[in-house]
Every structure is written in structure tokens, then in C-alpha cells.
Design a protein around this nucleic acid. Sequence first.
RNA 1: GUGCCCAUAGCUCAGUUGGAUAGAGCAUCUGCCUUCUAAGCAGACGGUCGUAGGUUCGAGUCCUACUGGGCACGCCA
Length: 571
Amino acid sequence: MITESLETRISAALARAGAPADSPALVGPATRPEFGDYQANGVMAAAKKLKTNPRAFAARVVEELDLEDMAASVDIAGPGFINIQLKGEWLAAQLGNVLADPRLGVPKDTTQKVVIDYSHPNLAKEMHIGHLRSTVIGDAIARVLEFSGHEVVRHNHVGDWGTQFGMLIAHLDEIADPAPELADLEVFYQSARQRFDQDAAFADLSREYVVKLQSGDPHVQRMWQQFIDESLAHGQRIYDALGVGLKPEDVQGESAYNDDLPRVVEDLRAKGLLVESNGAQCVFLEEFKNKDGQITPMIVQKSDGGYLYATSDLAAVRYRAGVLAADRILYIVDARQSFHLQQVFAVARAAGYAPATTALEHHEFGAILGADNRPFKTRAGGVVKLMDVLEEGVARAFAQVSEKNPDMDEAERRQIARVIGIGSIKYMELSFNRTSDYVFDWDKMLALDGNTAPYMLYSYARIKSMFRRAGVDEDALDGAIIIGERAENALAIKLLQFPEVVAAVARQCYPHMLCNYLYELADAFMKFYEQCPVLRADEPVRTSRLLLALLTARIVRQGLDLLGIETLERM
RNA sequence: GUGCCCAUAGCUCAGUUGGAUAGAGCAUCUGCCUUCUAAGCAGACGGUCGUAGGUUCGAGUCCUACUGGGCACGCCA
């Protein structure tokens, strides 16, 4: 909002001063407080193109620049930086607009249809820690895009097909009362696996079931559906506990593309993209050629006629870009799948499944590690169940809340602990740059200082507490914002940056940018709160400061909501 | 062997169109609660941004090589 206003005017001034047509103004927040509030760095590059002295050119740009209403001062510094001190009146007027806007200044952009593929657990097993990242990051991105105005289609591309289901269904079919075992999918899987490995007859039966499943045998099909339903219900319990927006109707599993797989292969053949190699059907693309001239192929059909996940991924691209007509298709998928997805995208382009106007984007993430810097496992070396993680987070938060508020009644402590526990796990996940690995650390995510969920929730609760104490009805608050103190100025600027951050996250799919912003906002508020008395101030400053606090609370709550994190009125 | 990603303060991390003296939190040290939640704030300490070159007015950011780490590479998903 601030950046956009400044950019428009400075670009115009650059043009009037004689800069080349495509000279960007390069506006951004000042890198140091003594430079002012905002700075423009575009003059140097433009002066260079004009082969003129940058400082003298900066002076001409400033002469052409009309910031009368916005800026208290415009200075030229160093080799040609333009430093801008914003006017308190202008900031106050902008904040007045935001205050009246339920969208908090975020413009609505309804231009795109976005399919987002995230979570995608393997239904053969229980959801584990490995599913946390895609689920939480994907959900935050979906929320940001939806709030930005885009049409968002959530696709939970669950693993509900493949040879392992033969073993599971055969086992399900044989045991008299599967309910107790099915209650824990991990137990069920292990027990089927054990029989498969130890009992040759059962292994044969399992393979028979795979064939029957694929050929549509009604009984096996029914058993498969029963198992899938059970597993999906388990997943839904996790989503509900996590506060993730995925619903049963968002499930678009691998099996949804079964009928398309032979068609995709035939289509690739018809388009001349298919080459048989050692009995398998492959696509060789020049762009995957290495220095020695060798091409790594993508196999779309095995020599035994079976299909692979590459095939169903291609079918999914064709469906999403073709039938759904998506403008963007986002894959919130493990970085290890990077090469695979590059191949899928390239083949999809070559086969014309995704037109150039449809963006195919892999937004990758790293691994969650244990304290030993190895992939996170239980002490016994097993998989860490996601539900256990959520329960432990809430339990730890409960101990913390109880220690801090021993007099609070238990029901409220439980509620607060749930929000802090779940919020901490999610915030930890979202506050790191998703591309790197991170170490799962309870103490860090539940820490009260720094860029953590508890700090964010505390800042919010503190504002709400102030309103309770003042006995002020937030909705009835009426008055103008006045920006006087430095801390008010800094807070005002932060508040006005919300739309820019939302836009950046919608574009680049990095939720940690939003976390960083919210942390800076909370930090700016805490400083304001220390330096500027609110309730003890005289009118009209008192109301102005209450309005600043109100706007901070609204943006923090909205920002956390975009991350999928609940807030607390009291903690 | 080929390719992709990563390397920033003692630790964990920001720094994403190349900008001024590289920022937070933790840890260590020093202040501030009879005043709006001290789950807070203020300050100090702490850096050859893996190494060596290059591009340019300017490089943590772009290019090349190297070192160290992670990951992926034709019939699992």
C-alpha cells in the first residue's frame, strides 16, 4: 500500500526527469531508521543508463517528485538514495481507511483459479510426522490465496492405490473382527506386513487381491472401500485436531485417475513421445540429457504393464489444467520429489496437458529432524505418529499454562493449552523458510520469547486485556488516529504493510514471510505499548491509541488465521 | 558418476526484483514491575556472510571453480 503509492509517484518523477522507460523506482522500507521511513534506490541504476551523475540526477527526480501530501521530508543521501519521511497525517488517513475495511487493506484479486495439492498421506498407514509439513504449509498457502480472492481448489492426492493394498485387504478379509486392529492403522499395517513376509500362501493371496482389485471384483472393491473410509476418517480426525481446512470432499486420490492411466499412455504414444526401453514405456526428453548425452527417462508403464505414480501424476496435471482449467497448480511436496516433478511438468508440457498459461509450481520443503540431526524418529526408531505429536504439544502447553496461571479453572487452561500446543507446532513449521530442514524442538516452539506462537498469542491477549480493563466496546470506538510519537509512526507503517506481505506470500508461497511480518508487528506494538500510555492518555490521544491497538489486534488475528492458527482472548 | 538444494554471530534462524554501517531470538552480562498481563521492555557483548576468483558505481544476494553437508537419479510411491 505504501510501497505502491510511492512507486507510482517516483516512477512518474523518474520518467519526467528523463529516465529510460523501464527504470524501476525500487521502493522499500528504509534499511536504517535514521534514513527515514522509506527509500527509493532506482535513481542510481537509471543515472548509470543515462551516463549521468547519480546525485545530480537524484536532485532532478526529487524536483519532479510530488509527495506533498505523503511525505514530511524527501532527502537525497549517499550516491543517490532518496530517503522519505512519511507524514503522520497521511499515515493516519491510510489507517482510517484500513480501520473501515473488513479486509484490512488487502485488495481482492479474483483473477485466478488455483489448484493446490497438499497433505496427500498414504492411506495404507497412519499419518506421521512426515505429513506435517505439507499439510500445515499447504493449508496456510491455501488460506492466503483464498483470502486474496482467488478461487482455490484443494486437492488431497492421497495414496489409495498400489500393490500394498492387496496385502491389507487380504488381511482385512481374513480376520473375524478387524475393528480393534483398524483402530490403529500402524498396527494393522505391521500385522499384514508380517503375514506377507512370513506366510507364502498369504503373499500369493495378497497378489491375487491386487489383481482382483484392479479388475473391479465387487467383494474386493468393497473391502478396499471399507479400508479407505477407515483411513480417511483417521486423517480427518488429524485435520480437525490440527485445525486444517481439508475436508472429505477435497480428497482426490490416486485411484481417481485409474481409468485415465491407459489413456495417458496411449496419448503419449500417439504424440510420439513414447519409447520402449527394456520392455518399459518411457519418455525421453532432451532437457534431461546430461553432459555425456545420456537422458534420464520417465517411465510411465512398467514392463509388466503396471502403471506408476508418474503416470497418475501426469493424469492429475491433465485433469487440473484441462478439466478444471486451473491457472496455477501448486505442489506442496517434499524436496526429494524435485526431480520427479520436474519430469512430470516437462512431460505434461510436451504432451500439451498443461498450456503455457497454466503455471506448474513445485513448492518444496525439507525434512523434520530429531535432536540428533537425523530424520525424526521415536526413541525405538519407529515412525512418529502425528496424533501423538499433537497430543504431546497440548500436554506440554497445559503444564506450562498451569504453572503460569495456577488459579485459572481447568477447563479454561485446557482450552488455552490446546490453542498454544497446536499453534506452536504449526507456527514452528511455518516460521522457517520451508526449503530447509529443521530440528523438531519442543522447548523452542513453546518458548515465550522470540518468533514463536506463544509470543504472538501473548501480544494479542495483551491487547484484548487492555480493552477489557478499559471497558471499551471495540465496535463502538469512534475517533481519529493521530500519529505523533516515533513508536506510533513505526507501528503505523507496520500496520500498513500487511497487504504487501499477503501479496508476497500469495505469489511466492513462503508462509514464513507472514510469520516474520507478524513478529515485527507484535514487536512494534510492544514497543509502542511500553512507550505510549494508552488508557492513561488524554483524549483525543487515548482513542487514537486504542484504535492503533485495535487495528494491531485485528491484523494479528487475521494474520494468524491465514496461518491456520487460533487466537486467545486471555492467557 | 550426473544433477538439485544448502553453508550468515557460540546456538537457532531472517535477510527472494543486487543498495548505505548484514538483522532478530537464545545464551552471557547490565538496568526497568506501588502505573494498561515482566509470557514484557531498554542496553551491552558477539560477524573476513564456507574458500578463491569474476561481473559493477555497488555482491550475503548474480556467474565460475573448489571445500564441506543433505538429497535425488529407467520399471516403489
